[in-house]
Structure formats: C-alpha cells, structure tokens
C-alpha cells in the first residue's frame, strides 16, 4: 500500500513533504521512544507517534521510514516541519489516538510483524 492511499482512506492531514507520498508502506511501527524506533523499526515502516520535536525526523531519515503520523491531534513544531521538508519525510496528523489509528492501518493490511 502506498502512503497516499493511507492518507486518503484514513483522512490524514499532510503537514509536509506532500510530493513524497508515493512511497510503498511495508509495515508499521508505533512508539514514542526515539531509542526504541532506532533499534527496532524497519525500512519502509509507517511510524505512529506522539513526539513532535525535530529529532523524530533525524530518526526517520536514519531508518528509512516511509512517513510519520502524529496522533491525538498533535502538530509538528516549525523546525520539525522545516527539517522534514529538507529530508523529504512526509508528516501526517490525525485526531485519532494510537490504538485506533493502528487498528485502522491494520485493517488496511499494514502489520507490525517482523519481516
């Protein structure tokens, strides 16, 4: 499933790197701990988190994450947006909490099992 399809199906709002939504999403990772994401996420994962500071972009870029979805209505900081534009990492936002968003992603076929 491609990133833009998820955006459409789940009504996500894209906050940056809108021209980079054609990435294929191969799996999902949900965590609010950067060290955990660094250690355990996989290339091509969609990352679901509450963290909004600019370090999330560094982590996503290092791990080749397909995109970041911020939950519970959290908005990225302005320096986070700037950095994500530069690194071409799409950031999306939703009012849904992690559990519901992941549940809906899961129903669309995005899973969190190790490949």
């Amino acid at each position: 499933m491609k990133l833009f399809e998820l955006v459409q199906k789940l009504g996500l709002k894209v906050r940056c790197a809108e021209t980079h939504l054609q990435h294929e999403v191969s799996g999902g990772y949900a965590s609010d701990l950067l060290s955990d994401v660094l250690a355990n996420s996989q290339t091509g994962d969609i990352w679901v988190t509450l963290q909004v500071h600019q370090n999330i972009v560094g982590v996503a870029s290092m791990k080749d994450i397909a995109g970041i979805i911020l939950v519970n209505g959290r908005e990225p900081n302005s320096d986070t947006i700037e950095k994500a534009e530069a690194e071409k990492i799409p950031i999306m936002v939703t009012e849904m909490p992690t559990f519901e968003l992941v549940g809906k992603l899961y129903n669309l076929g995005v899973t969190g099992t190790k490949k």
Binding site: G27, G28, Y29, A30, S31, N40, V48, E95, M96, P97, T98, F99, E100, V102, G103, K104, L105, Y106, N107, V110, T111, G112, T113, K114
Partner: peptide, 23 residues
C-alpha cells in the same frame, strides 16, 4: 512478544475500542 503496532492491530481486529472522544 509482539510490537506495539501488532498488539494494537490484533486487539482492534478482535473488537476492542480506543478511548478517543473522536471515535
């Protein structure tokens, strides 16, 4: 042993709901 993502997904599939006011 499952990840947060997989755990949420499986519980959602089994009919558990979130606590969101936006549900």
């Amino acid at each position: 042993p499952l990840s947060m993502f997989e755990s949420c997904g499986r519980l959602w599939k089994e009919g558990f709901v979130g606590g969101s006011e936006y549900e």
